[in-house]
Structures are given as C-alpha cells and as structure tokens.
Amino acid sequence: MIKKIYVLILMMVLLITGCNSNTNQHNATEPKMKTVPEQSNVRNLDQSRGNIRVLNTEVDNYYKEAVGKTGAELKQILHEIISKQDVIDYRGQQMWDALGDTDQDPNDPSKVMLLYAGRSVSKSNHGSQWNKEHVWAQYHGEFGRTRGIGSDLHNLKPEDPDVNRDRGHRNFDESADDYNGNRAPDTKWDADSWEPRDEVKGDIARIILYMDTRYEDTDRMDLKVVDSSPMDNSEPQHGKLSTLLKWHEEDPVDDFERRRNNVIFEKYQHNRNPFIDHPEWVAEVYNK
C-alpha cells in the first residue's frame, strides 16, 4: 500500500514538473515585442559623402524643388529658394548679437571666433577687438551696407579690425607674400589677392558661391563669381572661381559651418546656404 502511494506521488511530481517545463519552453519561443530605436529627425550620417547632412526634417522640404536638378536649372531654383529671407539692419544691435551667436567660440560661449585671425575674443568687445567683414567685399558691386545684400548674415563674419582693413577688397586666390603672422597666422596676400589660413578656405568658397547664387540677376544687383581677379569696384564681380572650387574640395564642410547655417536659418534670416547643406551641388552648378 505504501509502495503504491509512493508511486502515485512520484507520478504527480513528474506530471507537475513536465507542465512547468512546457510552459517555460513556450515562453522562451514566444516572439517578444521589439523595441524600435528612436530615429533622429535632425541629422544622420551620409556615408557616401562622409559628411553630416540634415535628413527627414523641414530642411529636406526646404530644398524639395531642387532635387534631381543640375546645372543652370539647379542654380536658378536654389536662387528662388534662398531669396526668401528676412532682412537684418547692418547698423543695429541685432547684427552684433547675431554675429556673436553665429560665430560663437565652441569652447567659450562668451567669445566669438575671428575668420582670418583664427582667435577668439569677447563678444562684448565688438567695434574694438572685432568688427564685421564682408567676405564678398562690398566694393565688388559698391553695394556698401545696404539692407539685404549689404547686411546678409551669410556673407558677414567677425574679424580683427586691422586685418579687415588690410584685406580690403582683394580677391581670394593663392598669394605670394606672407601677411602679418601676429594678426592672422598662415595668411598670405599680394597686390590683388588674399589667401586665408587653410582651415577656412572652404568656408570662404561656399560663402562666395552663396552670394553668386543668392544675388544673381536680382532687381538690385547681379553678382558674378569669375575666374579672374577684378579690382574695379564698380563691377559686381569677385574672384577667383577656379581657386575657390579647389578650396571647396580641400576644406570640406565642418560642424562650425553647419551650426552657423542652422542658426542663421532658425533664428535670423530663415534662409540657408545650400552649398553647406549639399556640398555636392557645387560641382553640379559650377562644373557644368
């Protein structure tokens, strides 16, 4: 009798254990809910170009009419897109504040980076330690400080006043002589050309190409980037195109440029430099 009871208990134990085992096996093979990683709607890495570009945002929508276009047609559409902008007063406090924002020292938010000099100075010392440099020199077309073309943030950069004065309206090209290394290291110049330090050559190229595209055949001015070094300030021409295209390739877009472009777009003019967002468009527009 005892033996039968023992066998009965053993069978019950085996039965219970088997049920638990089957339950665990079912749970192990049951599909689990997958956690979908949150996709950034700000930036992604385009491995084909090795550049960070904006994807899946209003920026893609901003350029939607330009997608698939090339040559003169692409340039015309970009002109129409980027010509829609708010205008800032060159002489107002907002311009000083904007440049302090767009060219802020990444390592010190109280300072601003100087374009040619390559050093940072206090934002509050504008007028003495830094002023506003027109990268497309205002004398190339004599547009001065006119609201709009003369106050376009994409074309204005903080600079040491003495360096700004010495650059004058020289064209951008390879130059023969060393400039004052204490004020702007690794900068060269000669009678009609200015060659900045390597770190900003591409930045300058993309600014000049922006100006050529933005102010092409406008009601006020028709700027043209040319493959020469015109010094007659009555002509709205700037050079030197072949050198600028070379600099664009040698000095790719960096994070400082991207941030600057975003700040101008989001906070001030609400237009963009397309050659920062799409560096490949330089070849599409200027090598056709």
Rank of each mutant, 00 (worst) to 15 (best):
R260H: 08
E73R: 00
K188N: 13
T29W: 02
D160E: 11
L241P: 01
T23H: 12
V36W: 04
E174C: 13
P158H: 04
N125T: 14
A98H: 07
S110P: 02
T17I: 14
H248R: 09
H154N: 13
Q237V: 03
L245D: 00
G68Y: 01
K3L: 09
Q47C: 06
V67Q: 12
M211Y: 13
E65W: 00
G148K: 02
I82V: 15
L223C: 09
D203A: 13
A117R: 05
N22R: 14
I52K: 00
T70E: 12
R260F: 05
G239M: 07
Y215D: 03
V225I: 10
T218A: 04
V253L: 10
S234C: 02
P106D: 11
F172T: 14
I77P: 01
N51F: 11
T102Q: 07
M221P: 00
S83W: 00
D103W: 02
L74M: 05
R260A: 15
N180D: 15
N125W: 00
D222M: 05
K288M: 06
H154G: 04
D101V: 03
Q76T: 13
D108S: 13
K188I: 07
Q93G: 10
E235R: 12
V285Q: 00
L55W: 01
N261D: 15
V7E: 13
Q129V: 00
Q94Y: 00
I88W: 00
C19N: 11
L74I: 07
